[in-house]
Nucleic acid binder design. Structure first.
Lengths: 135, 135
DNA sequence: TGTACTGTAACATTTTTAATTACAGATGAA
DNA sequence: TTCATCTGTAATTAAAAATGTTACAGTACA
């Protein structure tokens, strides 16, 4: 997997530091130490999930889409989630082999169980909880 | 992440189908539909964890390193585990930012919690359990 | 109307993953 | 003893994915 989740949590943590204020992508990028365009890209995604709101134009920027008590790290994972935690096999197993024929189905069920264990864990932590660590 | 876990489980499942017999990398590669050298590479890794034994030379091949009741999918995950489930940020956050300064530490703790949730889930399933699905 | 932002496309670069080739070494059988 | 069939592994190439960069249109405010 990639660093999207970390970036997303970092962004949200920053926004939560200055409630009500609008923060620019340049500032955020400076804290994470990545390119501002990447920040804006990730924010586009998080905004689609309602986790962030944005304002264009001069003195524009970003702020939380809802209160940090109502954002769990599971929500973030869901927004960012593209690659399953167990990885994804891209080969097509041999359909003439009894194992190859059905293994993908079983691996997918397994992946689903693991995902749900991850959500269960991450949903216990809100952004508010996480941000407390920075006080 | 990549498809290593799936490949590892596929290999082990195949080996468990023919207890006691030696199976060649070519056959395994044919079922998974990948290159035999990749199979041997992954097996080298699994062998380091005691999950597989191998025999060189003519009529050589691979078999399980211990009974399938004693191999959990958590063992497999551990052997394959290189990339954490949440991904890994490769940027160095800005040390002059209160958030950037300490976020990696907190993200790592978070990652550890998630890993342990994954293990908890995967350790409930043995290779024997998983193989039952193919009968 | 200029300035400071976001939004996004297009492209380049870097990193990671997978495939391929090649061959040495082991083992067993003719 | 020598041939065939396997593993073990290094080295290289090719393909895919992630990340970085550049460029610029659009929006909002002063």
């Amino acid at each position: 997997m990639n660093g999207q989740f970390q970036i997303a949590v970092h962004i949200l943590t920053l926004l939560n530091q200055e409630p009500g204020e609008l923060i620019a992508s340049e500032y955020i990028a400076g804290s994470i130490n990545i390119n501002p365009v990447l920040v804006r890209k990730e924010i586009r995604n998080l905004r689609n999930y309602g986790l962030i709101t944005s304002k264009e134009g001069k003195a524009g920027g970003y702020s939380l889409g809802r209160s940090p008590e109502k954002i769990t790290l599971g929500d973030v994972y869901k927004a960012v989630y593209s690659n399953p935690a167990l990885g994804q096999a891209k080969n097509l197993p041999n359909p003439d082999c009894p194992v190859g024929r059905q293994i993908n189905q079983h691996l997918n069920e397994l992946a689903a169980d693991v995902e749900s264990a991850i959500f269960k864990q991450l949903n216990t932590i809100t952004l508010a909880d996480f941000s407390l660590k920075f006080k």
